[in-house]
């Protein structure tokens, strides 16, 4: 049957060929599905949270009030604690490992849990991130000691605190100003956001995720199960197939952004450094004792997911 599906996301809007890769991905996905379904499926894309607030998307999909969304999974952590695994520091340290999840036990279990909650995973997208700093580069946990850092998520805040940092929380549109005035000294976020927030203008150092990172975020393209179930078998198959095909594009774009952010910061005369394996290990050790422990103790599902995820390390 014919349907027009709405895809919502929080990233800047562009076109199929220009702009933020996460927006481009939704547009490529839409065009390809429309073509293969011979026009029976059409899409409307709402970039930049122009449909609803970022935090409302997951719940709206569960209720069938929103068809699709590309959103960091861990944002729904308050509603469904299991999804916090999507941004667990040090649990994923490379793209190879990240993209292996889909077909590993942990991926299957995560899909099952989300299905139960009314969500279908369409496209598995992962992104590495880094740290922009207005003072010195943050590589080792010791570097973070006493610094005012925005972790951006519950789990990142936990490891930063354990490392002795002063964790600050503020809305993302204030990040630039806060870095400028010094209300905040460093921020952890994805390479793509490090570019789009233009923090290089107010930063003196950048730690990239090029050579491995403890900041890996799962931001899948998802669909409401209620909506998915209403589609024909053919349409469902098309959506799943195109979703899977998009993953190669996502992987390449994410890696390209990891490089691009280094270039942008280097051009702005910021000191660009990579995370070394020894430092990564230190962060992981902290995470195991704080964020992982906290997560594993949430409920049985979380404990199980954590165990399965550790197998992929």
């Amino acid at each position: 049957q014919n349907a027009t599906l709405k895809i919502s996301h929080q990233f800047p809007g562009g076109t199929v060929t220009e702009g933020d890769f996460r927006d481009r991905l939704t547009r490529m996905f839409a065009a390809e599905v429309e073509k293969r379904s011979k026009g029976s499926l059409k899409f409307e894309i709402y970039p930049g949270s122009s449909l609803m607030k970022t935090n409302a998307q997951f719940s709206a999909m569960r209720k069938g009030a929103l068809d699709m969304s590309l959103v960091p999974l861990s944002y729904a952590g308050g509603e469904v604690p299991e999804v916090n695994i999507g941004l667990m520091p040090g649990l994923v340290t490379s793209y190879e490992q990240a993209y292996g999840w889909k077909n590993a036990e942990v991926g299957k279990e995560l899909s099952r849990i989300l299905n139960e909650k009314g969500i279908v995973l369409i496209s598995w997208i992962w992104q590495a991130g880094g740290v922009a700093s207005r003072t010195k580069p943050v590589i080792d946990p010791d570097d973070a000691k006493g610094m005012k850092i925005r972790g951006g998520s519950r789990e990142m805040d936990l490891i930063l605190k354990a490392a002795g940092a002063a964790v600050v929380s503020l809305p993302s549109n204030e990040i630039y100003a806060a870095m400028q005035t010094g209300a905040m000294e460093a921020a952890l976020t994805s390479s793509t956001s490090l570019i789009s927030f233009r923090l290089e203008e107010v930063s003196k150092a950048l730690t990239t995720g090029r050579a491995g990172a403890y900041w890996f975020m799962f931001e899948p393209l998802m669909m409401s199960k209620a909506v998915f179930d209403r589609l024909s078998k053919d349409q469902q198959a098309t959506i799943m197939a195109v979703g899977a095909e998009m993953e190669a594009f996502a992987l390449n774009s994410a890696k390209a952004d990891d490089q691009a952010v280094a270039d942008v910061y280097a051009k702005a005369k910021a000191k660009v450094v990579d995370l070394n394996p020894a430092a990564l290990k230190k962060w992981q050790t902290i995470a195991r004792a704080t964020a992982w422990k906290d997560y594993g103790e949430r409920n049985e599902n979380c404990a199980k997911l954590l165990k399965l995820a550790e197998k992929t390390l």
Partner: peptide
């Protein structure tokens, strides 16, 4: 004009919009 399930999201939408520290 919208799917019936939308009516269930009204209050959460209003809350999410208002719950901004700014």
């Amino acid at each position: 004009c919208m799917p019936p399930s939308s009516l269930d999201t009204i209050t959460q939408n209003v809350y999410e919009e208002m719950a901004s520290i700014t």
